[in-house]
């Protein structure tokens, strides 16, 4: 069953002349992990804000078309309660710290206090989510005395703890090193297996290739490609739109031009695929030499 149904969505911010999203149509199934790629200004964040209800309820502006999440028309939901259904984690971890709390533990509990979760359940959920995101050792620290990567995990934990049906993440790994990014992707993959629907705007194509079920490429507010990660991430048009490609794809594309990639084999997006392709071409070369 499709949890997210978007039909011909066009949206313009109040102070802008041009729409941030044009004729976007999209369906996402329950428990699916969809990654959105695109250059800066392509509309990734706007799409995230729309699913979370901040467009049009916070930013106002003009919304045309239909957006249904969990069967409800986004235009007719109350934003203050909608956040229980759709969790939003955004880019700048610093501004996601509430400022109302003095320790990481309290910071994560803040959302649960607001939605009236009883104390015992609150503690259990906070501790669970801190273990899941690997920040249990930060419990008593001030949320402001953390590194960017630690703050980003706190921001993620603060939303996860509210157990939304749909999780929307706008570049949640921007401040994380490769190890931290992989951990976040693993946590998110795990949540998707548990039935949480995930929409994530992200630049790190290597991780997307490994963990996402589907990739949507946005450019200038329009969807230019949608499908399996292996398919979309090797689309030859991506660089023209200013979308970064995996280093493995880039190397293999260069190799293919020089005739060093197995003909008719799709370009790789992960290290394993690249290694397999080069191994194959090496074997045929050896075969020819002998």
């Amino acid at each position: 069953m499709a949890v997210i149904v978007i039909k011909n969505l066009t949206y313009t911010y109040p102070t802008m002349d041009h729409p941030a999203l044009r004729e976007v149509s999209l369906e996402v199934e329950a428990g699916e992990f969809v990654a959105i790629i695109g250059p800066n200004g392509a509309g990734k964040s706007t799409l995230c804000y729309t699913l979370a209800g901040f467009v049009p309820h916070f930013f106002k502006g003009e919304l045309q078309g239909d957006v249904y999440v969990a069967g409800q028309d986004i235009r007719h939901v109350r934003l203050e309660d909608w956040v229980l259904k759709v969790g939003l984690v955004f880019q700048n971890p610093f501004n996601q710290i509430s400022g109302a709390k003095f320790t990481v533990y309290e910071e994560i509990a803040f959302g649960l206090e607001n939605i009236g979760v009883p104390r015992e359940e609150m503690k259990r959920r906070v501790e669970e989510v801190m273990a899941l995101t690997g920040i249990a050792d930060l419990a008593d620290r001030s949320p402001y005395a953390l590194s960017g990567g630690q703050q980003q995990r706190v921001a993620l934990a603060s939303i996860l703890v509210m157990q939304p049906e749909v999780l929307v993440l706008d570049e949640p790994t921007s401040q994380l090193d490769p190890i931290g990014s992989r951990e976040v992707f693993q946590v998110i993959r795990q949540l998707a297996h548990q039935g949480v629907t995930i929409v994530m705007a992200e630049h790190k194509v290597e991780w997307i290739a490994q963990y996402a079920d589907r990739v949507i490429a946005l450019a200038e507010g329009e969807i230019i490609a949608s499908g399996q990660p292996a398919e979309v991430l090797t689309d030859p048009r991506l660089p023209e739109y200013g979308i970064g490609i995996s280093r493995y794809t880039a190397v293999a594309r260069q190799a293919a031009e020089e005739g060093l990639w197995p003909p008719h084999q799709r370009l790789p997006v992960t290290l394993e695929e690249a290694a397999a392709g080069f191994r194959a071409i090496e074997e045929t070369d050896y075969a020819r030499l002998r």
């Binding site: 916070f58 203050e80 309660d81 956040v83 229980l84 955004f90 607001n114 921001a155 509210m162």
Partner: peptide, 26 residues
């Protein structure tokens, strides 16, 4: 700019939720 993001952040944490609030500390 920070204020706008901060407003989104606390809204996303259910700050204006219509349910009665509880508290971690007694």
């Amino acid at each position: 700019v920070d204020v706008e993001e901060r407003a989104i952040a606390i809204e996303a944490r259910g700050f204006r939720s219509s349910r009665p609030k509880t508290s971690l500390v007694e």
